[in-house]
Design a protein around this nucleic acid. Structure first.
Lengths: 84, 84
DNA sequence: CCTGAATGTAATGTTAACCTTACATTCATA
DNA sequence: TATGAATGTAAGGTTAACATTACATTCAGG
């Protein structure tokens, strides 16, 4: 899954290890996400996005990404729904 | 993790099974999320939120939730960051 | 060129989110 | 009250996201 973690981390002058400490994850877990080898758990995605003061959707780019091991999923069932 | 899936699903008149079909998950997976037995993967959380035309953070309530098996994590490192 | 810090990656093990199957319970309605 | 649909839940299996440890590579400073 594409994401902006590396870019945002470097903007804050953090190493992978420092970011890992901030979110309670290992350096390797951060690295695997940045290099798109792993997809983060929802909590790790949330914690990372909080470090950057962004939403999950603004750090992890679902639209531009491909799902690893599943086929096509319908999008936008509630297209008329105007609530956030 | 607390979430609004049941409430939003019923608002659309969907069954757990129908929502599962829309997002490519089993009925039991939807049920486990609604009853807070499982935390969704990031993709399942995303797909569910798209059905409801909402953001992940508006369907899954991290702030009000407790993490299942981890301790305290620092929040808001980049507190001065005004970008979304 | 050294040297250390940062990064990339591999191996191995654990755990939880999924799956399928199956059965019990709740609930609306005929 | 019967009956079917929806929901809740349990058991057993698979898989991927983690952890830890270890080693190789890259890169900036002295």
């Amino acid at each position: 899954m594409k994401n902006k973690v590396k870019q945002l981390r470097e903007r804050l002058g953090l190493t992978q290890e420092q970011l890992g400490e901030l979110v309670g994850a290992s350096r390797q877990a951060i690295n695997a996400i940045e290099t798109e080898k792993n997809e983060p758990s929802i909590w790790l995605a949330y914690d990372i996005s909080r470090v950057f003061n962004k939403t999950i959707e603004n750090v992890f780019l679902f639209e531009e990404s491909e799902r690893k091991s599943r086929s096509e999923i319908s999008r936008g069932y509630a297209y008329g729904n105007k609530r956030d």
